[in-house]
Amino acid sequence: MVFDMYQEFILDYYRHPRNFGTLPHPDMISHDVNTSCGDEVTMQVLVKDDRIGNIRFTGKGCAICIASSSMLTEHALGKTLDEVSRFTKDDVLNLISIPISCVRLKCALLGLKVLKLGVYQFLGKKLEVQDEN
């Protein structure tokens, strides 16, 4: 049921996204767009002792995209870059804990893709397509 997708906490994260905004001197900035729908997310991270010291995101997108990106920033805060670089699709799906239809999967995973893009760039690694999932 698609209605299960729009539980109160998802709408709350959409309307009041946590960690929404920018950082004054971020160590990494990453950005990507879902070409099929136009959703876009930018992540900014401050690195402290190889960990996510602070994190903010901005973006335009649907409730699923904004809520999942926001939850991901909360989840990533304080984690080591190595841990974040190994975040998977299932980690995000567990975080948002709502049923996601396959057409909306891209919305849910855009934040993850952008965050990993930034971390991989920072670590000097290349994000392979299969890593997105």
């Binding site: 698609v2 729009y6 729908c37 997108g61 649907c62 995209c65």
Partner: peptide, 21 residues
């Protein structure tokens, strides 16, 4: 204040096809 994709998804659930984006 809902994004068009969310509107389209909910309409889809009722068998209504509208474009969004």
């Amino acid at each position: 204040d809902m994004h068009a994709h969310d509107v389209s998804s909910v309409l889809d659930e009722s068998g209504v096809c509208v474009r969004s984006g």
